[in-house]
Design a protein around this nucleic acid. Structure first.
Ligand SMILES: NC(=O)c1ccc[n+]([C@@H]2O[C@H](COP(=O)([O-])OP(=O)(O)OC[C@H]3O[C@@H](n4cnc5c(N)ncnc54)[C@H](O)[C@@H]3O)[C@@H](O)[C@H]2O)c1
Ligand SMILES: NC(=O)c1ccc[n+]([C@@H]2O[C@H](COP(=O)([O-])OP(=O)(O)OC[C@H]3O[C@@H](n4cnc5c(N)ncnc54)[C@H](O)[C@@H]3O)[C@@H](O)[C@H]2O)c1
Lengths: 210, 210
DNA sequence: TCGGCAATGTGAATTATATCACATTTTCGT
DNA sequence: ACGAAAATGTGATATAATTCACATTGCCGA
């Protein structure tokens, strides 16, 4: 079972399960059935069991899943039982909002470096103590701070260029907020966040149903 | 063909095609083959033709697609040949960054209302001229300003509550940035944006490949 | 100790999505 | 005017993901 190809959708759902389970922990739920968890997450119960079955057997038949254990197991699967150092490239509108946001650290994501080209921003100290570096120092600082993922929040026109530099600096995980498709070698994994695509999808549904 | 069930994935890809085509227009490309467009968008050429075939015949055999025409056609499909009025609920960190962002208006999305509960924010005028209202006035203002979609950027704990109010105010399209699964009636379409899920997915890929 | 219950884990069936492969249609050069 | 070239549109095929349905397993109470 361990060596089957894992659907991407499964990985994304595991994140959602994990987050839901963490909320349940705070409400002192300690055992949960796939049925109840499924309802909470808006998926089919068999889906949850199948998703987990790719990685092993984590439940107790007739009982359900121990919430705390399952959170740990999912974290193991996803590689989240360790901190991940992040770099932000582009400390503008969106970049700053993300840097200020407290949720990342709660999930083990730590901004340890930030870069910009604007002289007004370079040298500034961020609320989390990180100092904004000039993008010229990208490779050096990324290695020094042991950064493993880069978040691109520069203008779209710069995104590909920044991606290239990140890859050269040894980064192989990128979260791209610029609304362009960036090209990287196979060793590097890119995820895109594009809000307007989501808005378009809502527009389609509202138009189609009227 | 018109009445086949359209895959969600098709709709999302149409947005990507459209954006890529719009870039090409700026570079004065006026005809494009599915093959070249596919390469640019990182998909299979047959995929593009199939996606479009759900809605009609837009190309010229032996030639390709007229870029400008295809943009118009896709906009028609998605319902984007008209403006969409948006409301932002929660004018914090993220909400403000989005409100300041110029890309939305370029795609026909117009923020016409904004809401918060913080007395320091209510009454303030935003860069786009919109005044922040108290959330108590949600329904009234949403009707007055003819808002059709709501963006939720409040703390997660408030998200469901806000969603309920939006539905009551007649909204049936919601873009939710809070990291919780919100429940709405079938008439309402919800899309979620959750950055940490994307980070988790990157973490998984980096862990799995090492 | 044992039988019934409850909920998992999973092969099989179904549904959805993507790709192939080619007949069709248009353009263009001679 | 015609034949070759190019690229669409689409039925058939392949692949992937989801859901069903039930045998299996561990728990609990009598
Ligand atoms: N702000 C939003 O709400 C929002 C929403 C969706 C998408 N986006 C996308 O996110 C990106 C950033 O948006 P924004 O609103 O923060 O823009 P912004 O202009 O406020 O910020 C961009 C920052 O990048 C810096 N920069 C420019 N070139 C750079 C380079 N080569 N290296 C490093 N830094 C560089 C600029 O100095 C600036 O600080 C854009 O691609 C935008 O389309 C933003
Ligand atoms: N900031 C980010 O980069 C980021 C990233 C990912 C997810 N998110 C999510 O987006 C949401 C907002 O994040 P943020 O960083 O902007 O938080 P924030 O605290 O800066 O902003 C939240 C705003 O919502 C307002 N608010 C609270 N209750 C409200 C209510 N009932 N009605 C209307 N307004 C209300 C607050 O007054 C505040 O202005 C959160 O759910 C967060 O998890 C944010």
């Amino acid at each position: 079972m361990k060596f089957a190809k894992i659907p991407m959708a499964t990985i994304n759902r595991l994140s959602i399960y994990m987050r839901t389970l963490q909320e349940m922990l705070e409400d002192d739920v300690d055992v949960i059935s796939s049925e109840r968890l499924a309802k909470q997450c808006g998926v089919n119960p068999a889906q949850i069991r199948k998703d987990l079955a790719y990685f092993g057997e984590f439940g107790v038949r007739g009982v359900g899943y121990r919430v705390n254990d399952l959170v740990v197991q999912i974290k193991d699967i996803l590689g989240l039982n360790r901190p991940w150092n992040l770099a932000m490239i582009g400390v503008g509108n969106l970049g700053s909002a993300l840097l200020r946001h407290g949720n990342f650290i709660k999930h083990g994501y730590i901004f340890t470096a930030a870069f910009d080209v604007d002289p007004k921003k370079v040298g500034k100290r961020l609320p989390n103590g990180v100092i904004v570096n000039h993008v010229d120092e990208l490779e050096e600082k990324i290695k020094e701070k042991e950064v493993l993922m880069g978040l691109i929040t520069t203008p779209a026109s710069e995104a590909q260029n920044i991606a290239n530099q990140l890859v050269l600096a040894g980064i192989n995980g990128i979260l791209n907020f610029a609304p362009v498709q960036i090209q990287v070698p196979d060793c590097c994994h890119v995820e895109n966040v594009d809000f307007t695509i989501k808005l378009d999808s809502i527009a389609y549904h509202l138009s189609a149903s009227s």
